[in-house]
Amino acid sequence: MKNNLFLTSTLALSVIVSLTGCETLDQVTQSVTSVASSTGLINDDQAKSINKTTTAVAKPFEGITPSQEYYIGRTVGATILHKYKPYDKEESVRYLNTLGQALALASERPETFGGYHFMILDTSEVNAFAAPGGLIFVSRGLILCCKTEDALAAVLAHEIGHVQLQHGLQAIEKGRITSAVTTLAAESGKNLGGQQIAELTKSFEGAITDITGTLVNNGYARKLEFQADAAAVKTLKNIGYDPNALVAMLEEMDRHLKPGGMGFAKTHPKPKERIDELRKILRSADHPATLSKDRAERFEKFAEKI
């Protein structure tokens, strides 16, 4: 009898889910399991199990806290630097960080656990990477595609968009984030044992491989790139840079990228496709470029040393 009741409530849940769509799946499921549990249709453990499963379906990376995201990002960053050498010229690094950190403030995620930090990669390859948590890497090749500070701001705002929308974490394969990651030690707060650390390190290593594989080799899905572009437009408007500079930068990039080439050419949709998407949300009247002499001069000074 109880099993029948449980099946009935599960059926009811399926109907609600199909009616409400994925975004509210977790919320609805929790409500239904709460009712089913309190009325004795299912026990607490069954309710928790259903909730956990649907949460995992809705957002596999949701259990990752900002502090865990920070540690993932640090290792992703260190792995990227295993492939690319940093360009350490202090003045240039400072300029990039001033521009980038100002932009991050105007984004929809102004603060992350460890904050936003920017680095130049010493390569002529046209490329950029955003590690989870706010470590952002831009190549000399990509900086040279930017003809104005507004264009460089657009590049950085796009990468901030990936951080803001947690696209890096979304690259982690399903099943990688096990209960070991999300609930281990939650009951006790005790120090973890050697075996638990080993298990976590294995999951960690897997997550790093998933993310760096996506960033360096496969690239994000088109949809995520367009989302990061839309987030960039919003950030640029908020702070007062010209969002149309993103189009100008993509046009310039299109001239530099060789079909079938490395870096951006391999991991990003064609600039033309991104421009077409951007045109749908941009208006020429949006923050037209300010003809600031100081802005132009400081960018020129920065670009000369790249």
Partner: peptide, 23 residues
Amino acid sequence: KGFTEEVEKEYKAQNKDIDFAPI
């Protein structure tokens, strides 16, 4: 819990060629 400094330390011990100093 989860991915912590302790896990990073273990990862570093297993991946000595990955340099965290620039990070």
